[in-house]
Design a protein around this nucleic acid. Structure first.
Lengths: 361, 361
DNA sequence: CACATATGGGCCGAGGAGGGT
DNA sequence: GACCCTCCTCGGCCCATATGT
């Protein structure tokens, strides 16, 4: 009973009715070849099309219209993985919402980093997509040029340090850290630390956030004790090193190594994962969170809600960013000349106060 | 400097060289129109194509070959969301790996459930994709018929209770629960409970797992005390009800309500999220996990590794399932007649022992 | 005559310019 | 001007048909 319904084409309908393909095309697919079609003819065509189960052929339409009505989404290979997946999911939700509204489909390139970017570039040359979302890449990447040369419109999403040659939608990293410091400061903290990454790779966001932390502190006349900053300068952990799961996390270890009276009363962590490990380790060592130490993390992934105590975190408007990126890309697609100045939009993050921040003892 | 490189076609190359399009097509895109092309001609064509930067046009190839070299992935709307995202990500990784190997692209339909399935069905009729992955749907859905009628090959992934009309790749729910019971039994537990969902919706997996629990218990001559089973029959919580985050979770509450000597010594939870809440609440109420009570969850999402104590859980081979589904779909695509009997493949889950299961006191 | 090699032109299924009543 | 038709285009695929050796 699997009657692979013989595909019905415009020609079939035209023959059935006894008119030309052009009229049928005009009525069914709003093609602009013809201006006016009489009401009776219009209805007749619609009726027959419906009876025969006509559907426009996608490939054919793409060829004729020189448009695939598809956007691609490219995610560069990431060594960090794990928590990233939900992070991207939220951006995706926004992108998809926009795409649905604009009637674009979404092609996933390299969702998990196995595919090299050269493959993606080839797809662009083949005009497989009308535009491309570039997810959390960062400025200065050597391969960006390859994408741009294809002439296919590109919008970066969560693209830190965007160069002047590409549209980008980003959240305000510096502002986020400033708000975090502000939150702790308002609670009465003055001894505020920053727990960052220990990797030997260059992670732009880490550098950005650490600098932003220093600026936010000094702009409030708060002291910055180098002992409150934990990062690769304190303990370098190359990416290939696998930490023993039964040991305390490096950041917890570090804080515990500080004399009690020299510890910060609150810390900002580079991301949620660091916060999760830190908090659990501190609690296991008898340091109460938030009573003995406040912790605020950055990114506000699902895990912040699931942990007890629930983690105070900086939430970025990732979904809005993705949504906005969709419309920006659509704009570029419509534009005749793509010489228009690249657009950089900055989104503001917010504090989501939960249970890991409190006034100091 | 945005020279939107004039697209180079077969015709351009043919004119440049002074030969016909057909030969060029044979050499560059392996089209079968011609059998033999001389070596000099072959090299000349390749050289010129490379110089001019020729790329086959995707839409045109699709039209001529009647193939889009694209698979779609459809995820039905899910009321539960949240943790599901990482769950699907793992399946996706497998699907993508297969697609990359087979040179198919992946179109995401309805990643977040805003889009209705009718839209997706239309895409199938338009021959936008050569095949479709149907992610964690379940048998008996009223809309499946709509997909099948299009004649486009479909493979269900994580598709419980698959009907006889569709290929499906599933993990063995019943076997997973049996292994979980077995794990606890081997540790010495006899008083084993099951903490399920309290929703008013019909969730096939929940029903399946609860039944499997009963079967696994009786097959080992273990007692099944109805008081050890927590689900919608004990406390019905409609989906629209939002629980107070500051209260204990229903399952923890329930266990605490039992007289100490009537509690199970170990429980299996329907999924990881339930386990996370249960464990944290039990600990907060002075019940040590695993010393006072063992907990094993099902699904083994990332959170199991992040929690302290780390959660023992049942891991499903989701990536392998996705990967396998890719090849199954490809097979269907190649088949002349799709009358071949639908294939149902069952994958086995495994216990990942961590820190929440131990022998009873 | 067989064989290797190359060509012309119709085809896939739609879009659309220009012309005719 | 309202309405409809013919014919060519998009870019690649491939069958049928030449050539030459």
């Amino acid at each position: 009973m699997t009657q692979v319904a013989k595909k019905v084409t415009l020609k079939d309908i035209a023959e059935q009715i006894g008119c030309s393909k052009a009229v049928v095309s005009t009525v069914l697919n709003r093609s602009k070849g013809n201006t006016g079609v009489s009401q009776p003819m219009r209805e007749k065509i619609q009726q027959v099309a419906s009876e025969m189960g006509y559907r426009p052929n996608y490939s054919s339409q793409s060829l004729a219209r020189q448009k695939t009505m598809t956007f691609g989404a490219f995610i560069p290979p990431q060594p960090w993985g794990s928590i990233g997946s939900t992070y991207e999911s939220v951006i995706f939700r926004g992108i998809e919402k926009a795409c649905q509204e604009l009637d674009y489909d979404l092609l996933v390139f390299n969702r998990f980093g196995d595919q090299r970017h050269e493959n993606c570039v080839e797809k662009l040359y083949q005009r497989r997509v009308d535009g491309l979302f570039l997810l959390h890449a960062h400025g200065g990447s050597d391969w960006l040029e390859g994408f741009l040369k294809t002439g296919v419109p590109i919008v970066g999403v969560d693209y830190s340090n965007p160069e002047d040659t590409v549209d980008a939608v980003t959240f305000d990293n510096i502002g986020a850290i400033d708000l975090a410091v502000n939150h702790l400061h308002e609670l009465g903290h003055r001894r505020i630390g920053y727990m960052g990454l220990c990797t030997d790779r260059h992670v732009p966001d880490h550098v950005l956030r650490r600098n932003a932390y220093r600026v936010a502190m000094t702009s409030r006349d708060l002291p910055v004790d180098e002992a409150w900053i934990f990062d690769e300068t304190k303990q370098l952990i190359p990416d290939h090193v696998v930490l023993d799961e039964n040991q305390l996390s490096p950041s917890a270890n570090y804080i515990l190594s500080l004399p009690v009276d020299q510890r910060p009363t609150a810390v900002i962590t580079y991301n949620d994962k660091l916060a999760v490990n830190l908090i659990q380790d501190l609690i296991s060592q008898g340091i109460e969170v938030p009573h003995d130490m406040s912790v605020i993390s950055v990114d506000d992934s699902d895990i912040c809600k699931m942990m007890r105590p629930r983690i105070t975190s900086m939430r970025h408007p990732l979904e809005e960013m993705g949504y906005r990126a969709g419309y920006l890309l659509h704009q570029r697609t419509l534009a005749e000349n793509n010489d228009a100045k690249p657009i950089h939009e900055l989104f503001t993050s917010e504090v989501v106060e939960r249970q890991t921040t409190l006034c100091p003892r």
